[in-house]
């Protein structure tokens, strides 16, 4: 078995349909959608499309959990003993089990919410963050950026379950949220330990994380205003080892990502 499996080789059964993040961002219909004034973009049970949006998001969580499982698994395999410490690999193996459970929870929850595997497409950008060749870049991209986004998503979904009176959704998201805080803390701890005497490597890792954070902001998907469906979970991120400055930076990155997406979408829909 070769090291560093490319995203194109992720194995799936016939139900899965793959798309790219650029397909979503460059969709020419985005401009028309953005011009509609529908008020807050937050997930609110009173909105007509709330149930469908929640199902779509749940399916996205499901495919994201599969890729997080695959990314953690590859990190146990891709690095030799001298490239990644034994204890780091043990943490990644533990994460494999956690992500495996999250996929199981997501399948059950998807059924509960009225969707099924393959109803929505799958983008592989989560796994792509797990393809860095330096293990600490991988930990920053996956555990701090991706799992950090998962904290924001699960917290938003937990609140949605609470206000919409869905105890099953709230229960499941609460449990997954506990695991995600653990995973982000794992990433923060390893970043500190592995780069203690190597500030250049630490900066490279943090720069990689910024890039992934911007990508994961998905053109305004995550942020701190009413325009962002997923809200930045400041308190939980602090529990997971993020400093206030780091959370502020993610918030700024989210704003920038939203502006970039607007500009790209406007460019795509302009007559040539």
């Amino acid at each position: 078995m070769k090291k560093n499996l490319p995203p194109s080789e992720l194995a799936r059964d016939s139900r899965f349909v793959r798309s790219t993040i650029m397909d979503a961002i460059m969709d020419p219909r985005n401009q028309a959608l953005a011009e509609r004034d529908l008020g807050s973009a937050k997930l609110q049970p009173g909105r007509p499309a709330a149930a469908d949006r929640a199902r779509n998001l749940m399916h996205g969580i499901f495919t994201g959990e599969i890729q997080a499982l695959e990314g953690a698994g590859r990190t146990t395999f891709d690095f030799d003993d001298d490239e990644a410490p034994f204890a780091l690999k043990l943490d990644m193996a533990r994460q494999c089990w956690d992500e495996s459970r999250h996929v199981e929870i997501s399948v059950k929850l998807g059924e509960w919410m009225g969707t099924e595997i393959g109803e929505y497409n799958e983008a592989t950008f989560l796994y792509e963050a797990a393809c860095a060749t330096d293990p600490i870049l991988r930990l920053c991209g996956v555990n701090r950026a991706l799992e950090g986004l998962a904290i924001d998503v699960f917290n938003t979904m937990r609140e949605f379950g609470d206000i919409s009176g869905d105890p099953v959704l709230e229960f499941c998201e609460d449990w997954m949220l506990a695991d995600e805080v653990t995973h982000v803390k794992m990433g923060s701890d390893w970043l500190r330990r592995l780069t203690e005497n190597d500030p250049e490597r630490r900066e490279r890792a943090l720069e990689f994380q910024r890039g992934v954070d911007k990508l994961f902001s998905l053109g305004g998907f995550r942020g701190e205003t009413d325009e962002n469906p997923i809200q930045l979970a400041r308190k939980l991120r602090a529990m997971a080892g993020f400093s206030t400055d780091e959370i502020d930076e993610i918030s700024e990155i989210s704003v920038q990502a939203q502006e970039d997406a607007r500009a790209m979408s406007a460019g795509a829909s302009a007559p040539s």
């Binding site: 080789e9 194995a11 799936r12 499982l69 698994g73 395999f77 891709d78 193996a93 089990w97 996929v103």
Partner: peptide, 26 residues
């Protein structure tokens, strides 16, 4: 063994097998 199971997770298309390998890896 745990490295191998972790590496295989991404290479098996069968969803139930994928999840079992993730659990056994740990």
């Amino acid at each position: 063994l745990f490295e191998t199971l972790g590496g295989w997770v991404a290479t098996v298309p069968e969803l139930d097998v994928k999840l079992v390998l993730g659990r056994h890896c740990y």
